[in-house]
């Protein structure tokens, strides 16, 4: 796993898909190819409750990525800092990575006959910026953080709110 993660705060997400489009524009992919995908269910009303569930699926940047293992031409690369990306000039378009990935993260771009996928916007990150999906997210629901940073924040926030409740009796 990469040192950083792209995290979604569901309570802020409005399911607008700006993340997908910011990603497409940055990576100059055709309109039908989405390296980052927002999976949103709802808003749907059932039994009086209205729910909107959302998850953002760019790439998990696995510690042992099957897509890298299966690539016959070493176009799929895992960098030392953890970002898994396609070296586009090497890709021969065999799509073995798509077949291997349990999440079907790599996307087929028929206009260039190659695979494209989330590379964590490593060029932006190297320039001191955050990934395009995070930078443009309509409601700042996406964040870019160290792997355990957000988890720690959420854990603390939850524990504190319990303590406050207990204090108030």
């Amino acid at each position: 796993m990469a040192r950083h993660v792209i995290d979604l705060d569901e309570s802020r997400c409005i399911g607008c898909r700006a993340c997908e489009v910011h990603c497409q524009v940055k990576n100059r992919t055709p309109a039908g190819v989405r390296p980052g995908q927002l999976v949103a269910v709802g808003p749907e009303r059932s039994r009086g409750e209205v729910r909107l569930a959302a998850a953002f699926r760019p790439c998990f940047h696995c510690e042992k990525p099957w897509c890298v293992a299966v690539c016959p031409v070493h176009a799929m690369v895992r960098r030392a800092d953890g970002w898994v990306h396609v070296a586009r000039e090497l890709c021969v378009g065999c799509r073995a990575c798509i077949a291997a990935c349990p999440w079907k993260v790599p996307q087929w771009d028929e206009t260039i006959g190659k695979v494209v996928k989330c590379d964590g916007c490593m060029d932006r990150v190297a320039a001191g910026l955050v990934p395009a999906c995070v930078a443009g997210c309509t409601t700042h629901a996406l964040s870019f953080a160290q792997a355990n940073e957000n988890v720690r924040k959420i854990r603390l926030h939850y524990a504190r709110s319990l303590l406050v409740q207990k204090q108030r009796g």
């Binding site: 898909r17 700006a18 443009g136 309509t138």
Partner: peptide, 8 residues
């Protein structure tokens, strides 16, 4: 820094 899906 935010802009919505239409703006993007």
């Amino acid at each position: 820094g935010a802009i919505c899906v239409r703006g993007a």
